[in-house]
């Protein structure tokens, strides 16, 4: 199963990078969701995959049965999931508030903090973001 997960991680990474590079804030947020899934899967695969044996110890025993899943990456991922949720919620609110303020989700137009200095931009920029707020 590991090679399959490796490919999955690659697909998720590529998709998220592509989404983050699109000019749309909404798509950027989607990319954020995908990349945290990719990272979690990566950590999970890194600890080795074991089918169907959760790292639990039977009542009364001192040690888990041999061959249980690796508990360490699980603990790492568990907190990572909750944190990436916090990050996502913050990003969503930020995107929403940015939209309220600037009336656009086009990141190329969001130039309030660093107004254009010269024409050497990546590509054509439809409208100037030099408004002061």
């Amino acid at each position: 199963m590991e090679p399959i997960v490796a490919v999955l991680v690659g697909v998720l990474m590529a998709a998220s990078v592509y989404l983050m590079l699109s000019r749309n804030l909404v798509r950027f947020v989607f990319g954020l969701v995908l990349i945290s899934n990719a990272a979690n899967l990566l950590i999970f695969a890194g600890g080795g995959l074991t089918r169907a044996a959760p790292p639990l110890i039977a009542s009364g025993a001192d040690l888990p049965a041999s061959g249980v899943a690796n508990a360490l990456p699980q603990a790492l991922i568990l907190t990572a999931i909750v944190i990436s949720f916090g990050l996502l919620a913050f990003a969503l609110v930020l995107a929403f508030r940015a939209y309220q303020e600037l009336e656009t989700v086009d990141t190329d137009a969001m130039r309030v903090a660093e107004p254009r200095e010269d024409a050497a931009e990546l590509e054509e920029t439809p409208r100037s973001g030099d408004r002061t707020v």
Binding site: P3, V5, A6, V7, V9, G10, V17, L42, G46, G48
Partner: peptide, 16 residues
């Protein structure tokens, strides 16, 4: 995106 994705896959393959 493709380069990042392929490289990530290769790294995970090598790690696992």
């Amino acid at each position: 995106a493709g380069v990042v994705g392929v490289c990530t896959t290769l790294i995970v393959l090598s790690v696992t």
